[in-house]
Design a protein around this nucleic acid. Sequence first.
RNA 1: GCACCCAUAGCUCAGCUGGAUAGAGCGCUGCCCUCCGAAGGCAGAGGCCUCAGGUUCGAAUCCUGAUGGGUGCGCCA
Length: 583
Amino acid sequence: MEHNMNLFSDIRALVLASIETLQAEGALPEGLNLDPVTTEPPRDPAHGDMATNAAMVLAKPAKQKPRDIAEALAAKLADDPRIASAEVAGPGFLNLRLAPSVWQALPAAILKSGTDYGRSDMGKGVRVNVEYVSANPTGPMHVGHARGAIVGDAMASLLAYAGYDVTREYYINDGGAQVDVLARSVYLRYLEAHGQEVEFADGTYPGDYLVPVGQALKDKVGDAYLDKGEQFWLAEVREFATDAMMDLIRDDLAALGVHMDHFFSEKSLYGTGKIEAAIDSLRDKGLIYRGVLEPPKGKKPEDWEPREQTLFKSTEHGDDVDRPIMKSDGSWTYFAPDIAYHYDKVQRGFDMLIDIFGADHGGYVKRMKAAVSALSGGEVPLDIKLIQLVKLFKNGEPFKMSKRAGTFVTLRDLVDMVGADVARFHMLTRKSDAALDFDFDKVVEQSKENPVFYVQYAHARICSVLRKATEAGVNVTDETLASVTPDLSHPAEVALAAKLAEWPRLVETAARTHEPHRVATYLSELAADLHGLWNRGNDEPGLRFVQDDSAATQAKIALARATAVVISAGLGILGVTPVEEMR
RNA sequence: GCACCCAUAGCUCAGCUGGAUAGAGCGCUGCCCUCCGAAGGCAGAGGCCUCAGGUUCGAAUCCUGAUGGGUGCGCCA
């Protein structure tokens, strides 16, 4: 892959090279660990363009005063043409100012790379499996599933952008008792389609969405299942019904812009020896035994009685108690297929696993991690992201979902009401382990308190300027803009360029921490810088992007266009369309 | 009882592998359109980063403990 410009890592490399020069000259000892050395944007722009902590982190191992190291390093760095000045500050910070030519080269580099500017090879092609959604195939997805779907999808895109080899995967829970319930419910709708009166007892799904499925079953098999016992139709109807539900779910996901690479069926683990193989793998490691668990303290279930069960010694891998994998009747607990599924992922050769769970599954994190640790011999890390609740609001009032009151909001309703772009961006504005407020009215409001709009507006404004310039006969193609020297004569322009320089660094941080919401936060900040610069043009005509002559216009617009490219790249990761007009 | 998550401005929340004077939006006060889109911008006020210790040259950030809130806790997935 072509090396994209990354100012922070480029300057960090320069700092490291200067340190090595000092080592060669004997001014610093050999064998220092240089990993903690960073280059970062200063909090206060008055401190310069970039700061490095090198002198402070090396002081102790080098047994020298930080300011002495900083002085020596500053002298070396100042020799490089990219460094305009290097000043020692505070306890030993080294504040760097970059030469104007460095900033001027940035927009051109961005325009040449396009939305690949910021793409990283950090992931080194490591194979990552991201499992998300994994909703039961018993009905349409509701709005609560949307956040997990969006976070998982953005996570996958982010990791791919950062150089990982990503697989997006959905685990279909089609092996348990709830699909029997689904099948019986569909059977009732099938009878109804044949004109029979039916009653939906407790333990069946009465939702209307099964009406067409019952009709479709009638169209397929006619009256073949009428007046027959379950043993004649249950297996077939189960498959028919789950297929129908998965079609529904796939469509819902597509409406949100979510597309999976792989759907993995829990059912495929049964009767194929896969569960047995996974458990045997644990047994070979001495982690399976028969035993009796202690009752949980403080909250003892009324019907508690000591029972001998087949247990997985998850405590060997960090869990708090060992976990049952087999019921007393000899059938598997739900944990067993989960183990087998993750064993399958390990065997497929993934180097890293990420599971996106609802926060109500927080209790399963440790046992899942223990299982993967045991199954992979500690080789494959599993990160589990818990997605907190979305609190719904309408006009500022809490909005309770209730099937009975008819205020049940499906994922499809969500997309119909606010659109996929708005839903996606908004769900990514908070870190996933914090609860999120979602107001159906505010998220579509066109004002700056709505971050989706705010970022889109910045992009649209830039597109507007490009249209204006084109109308004025100025050539503003990316190719042309990449060849002009950008006009960054005002500090506000340099500040915007500096923000653009942070993009590759932001991508790597977000990917490393598995936090796609950082991209949304960054885009809001970038948009704010753009709007700020834009409005300065009101008072200072010299800062407007469209100038009197075409060379000056091109010199101004190069920076704006580079900003649009980065917004576009960021929105691309979030799965949001960068619009060219707001109307 | 135990485990996990959370605690930052009046409200909703950002805060980078620990870094300098902790940021944004809303709300509040005062400004800016004969001007590239004012759907925006600028300035001001507003903080014991829940508390107490610890590690460090340096802590909102890491560790320990406390307090407050959420979630979960053996044959439901």
